[in-house]
Design a protein around this nucleic acid. Sequence first.
RNA 1: GCCGCUUUAGCUCAAUGGUAGAGCAGCUGACUUGUAAUCAGCAGGUUGAGGGUUCAAGUCCCUCAGGCGGCUCCA
Length: 644
Amino acid sequence: MPEIKIGSGKLDVQDGKRIIDVLKELKENRAAAKEFGVSGDLDEAIIAEYNGVMRDLSAPLDEEGYVRFLTPRTIEGLDTLRHSASHIMAMAGMRLFPGAKLGIGPTIKDGFYYDMDIPGTVVDEDLARIEEEMQKIIDENLPVVRKDISYDEAKKMFAKMGQDYKIELIEELKAQNITLYTQGDFTDLCRGPHIPSTRHLKAFKLLSVAGAYWRGSEKNKMLTRIYGTAFADKKELKEHLELIEELKKRDHRKLGKELDLFSFHEEAPGMPFWLPNGVIMKNILVEFMRGKLNELNYIEIQTPLILKDTLWTRSGHMDKYKENMFFTGTVEGESLAIKPMSCPGGFLVYRETKHSYRELPLKVAEFGIVHRYERSGNLHGLFRVRGFTQDDAHIFMTPDQIEGQIIELIKLIDEVYSAFGFQYKLELSTRPEMSVGSDEMWENSTEALRQALVKSGREFKINDGDGAFYGPKIDFHLEDALGRTHQCGTIQLDMNLTERFDLNYTAADGQEHRVVMLHRAIYGSLERFIGILIEHLAGKFPVWISPVQATILPVSDKFNDYAAKVLDELKNAGIRAEADYSSEKLGYKIRQATLKKVPYMLIVGEKEVEGGNISVRGRDKGDLGASGISEFIKNILDENQKRL
RNA sequence: GCCGCUUUAGCUCAAUGGUAGAGCAGCUGACUUGUAAUCAGCAGGUUGAGGGUUCAAGUCCCUCAGGCGGCUCCA
């Protein structure tokens, strides 16, 4: 009779009893459940944590320990619910598409998917049919049963069903015991745990259908992947679906068009065309960064966009990244490449003169326009482009300057991200399998990065083996308003290119030494950063970034002259302002300016002409009342300067 | 690149294989407007490009291009 702890209580459980039996007993004895402090979890429990392991409710209680009932409102419970939902979807798929073969069906962040090899095609319209079939399976309330069988039996069984992919998975498991889960006539290879019966799936939705290579390899067959999600109840599901809608509204591709920031054309796939408003934003980001770099004694250079092949051969790009480069030539037969990175050009500049240890660290920035060939299917708005502006810099230094420079960079990056209201996380990536440089160099440089991180006082995660082949790196992952992360900033130590380009400095001992070099980017790609910013802020930029900071709205044509006068004053003060002289009603003009997300609307009519002032309307706050013109100018300039 | 979907007026979208249409935007005029859409008129199209099937193609088939959702890739 094992003793089982449940909540704050204890039960002696008869041999042979299962978790679900105890659950039933507690449901019948609410007083005891309440006393144990587990009453709230009983009705929705779908799995249990039994001595630290997630188990089915049907699992036997054969050893002493503790049990914790888990509902779909816990992380583990929700994960189980979604996993079971993927099985139900696969079962529905098998019913609707005879001859389908099952791949894998795991849970992912916010949902689940199942990969199936389905004869013919599955289109979006089929999702509703599959959902209906899933609902039938749920209504049938089929028990989900776990069974262990031997390796040979399992192989035989799936061979009989013609489930080739499952056989491949079993062979890979190499385990003597194979676990199966069965609901009705559907059996799947699975580790579990699962919901006790199909009825426990109460809120689900299929979202999309896509292709996915078997086992994620391009060499393999492409299967049909169906994505879906499931939640504890309909309300949570609805909230999630609304979040998806919100994401669509914030999509930078949509907002970029609506706010006249940038466009794309068939003639140049993956290469954004920056419109006047977008150029203003880009310039603001560059100028903001230049201000910061000035304070830190950076110098700035600009190197050519097109350089001879020979340079790229020397840098190693021709060897490793040729497939991602654009090439061009001349009638004279020169062979040239469009730069995919700014570094090699920068090294030519570094090599123009001898460098003394006295001038190190030498911090050389370049807002370089780089082009990288991305496969057509990978393009995605500003997030994945073929041509972009990189806020690159190379820091040349002595080995003992590494730590100080990293700390300086971490501080700089923090200032930049904070100005835009971003939170972020740090990651340190260490030596990968394929790499250049000696063990000692790797150890020293990785340790230098680690020490700098520790001294910065920031928390960081270690990504073992995820460094670049030429050196360890620190990556910065931005978190946007919707909880998504984007890798932007990066600090990379490069032990390869200094070697290839023979980059040296003369030390105090009069000898030439190999210089230590960091690549670093903060925005990463300006294009991508602007895309992230658009979605983060839903297009509602603060005054300092807004392409148009204020729009003047005359109440009628009669006040156009006064509006023009106000506009002049604002422009003279350096404010990015416009006036709407259309012969529309005020309400219409307000609507237009609001849709363009202009932070301030300045209304001028009879009252304002008489008072020699303006009425201010905030983008979000509405009518803010009358204000003197110079008072408003002072306030908006202050807001601009403080980057509020 | 691969799988699936998609492309109709500047934008958002309609149109059983049988005469391509609406709203918004644009232009013209009227109205002279007070905090999220005033009214009327006008104009706007080789239906992404190219082939094919058919008496007849926006609609069906093929090729190509762009876009979307994924996969793969991202120095």
